[in-house]
């Protein structure tokens, strides 16, 4: 379904479904094609609202303290901007396209994530 949704965006708009850059480009003043970006994000939010109504269990709780949540959000924002992508752009679309940058980026963020979970596990 994620693959099909990304493919639909490619066929209709000729774009890569990379969430971080669809969002990130809205923060730039020189982005002219804001319409489809807003619409795509609106679709994501709508899915979230509907999902919460139909199957609340699908949205899992975040159990970490808010300081950790805020730090994580900040790191994800910085990291995806500097590294040009996240799980969708590099992970799904990039790997599918055999992009050399994504083939390097995905193992890098998976490894960093795994090390983080391993270290965080020591504090639990």
């Amino acid at each position: 379904m994620i693959g099909a949704a990304s493919a639909l965006l490619l066929v209709t708009h000729g774009r890569i479904a990379g969430i971080s850059s669809i969002v990130g480009s809205l923060l730039k003043s020189d982005t002219h094609d804001r319409g489809w970006r807003h619409a795509f994000i609106g679709g994501l939010v709508a899915a979230g609202v509907l999902g919460n109504m139909l199957a609340p269990a699908a949205i899992g709780a975040v159990t970490q303290p808010i300081v950790v949540v805020a730090t994580a959000g900040l790191l994800v924002g910085i990291g995806t901007s500097v590294g040009s992508g996240c799980t969708s752009g590099h992970g799904v679309c990039g790997l599918s396209r055999l992009s050399p940058r994504s083939l390097v980026a995905v193992p890098t963020f998976m490894l960093a994530g795994a090390i983080t979970v391993w270290i965080a596990g020591a504090f639990r």
Partner: peptide, 20 residues
């Protein structure tokens, strides 16, 4: 690319959320 992906990975691992 490497530094950015590593920073993203740490944030992802901390809470289990990525942008989407």
């Amino acid at each position: 690319l490497l530094v950015g992906a590593a920073i993203f990975g740490v944030g992802w691992g901390l809470v289990g959320l990525c942008p989407g």
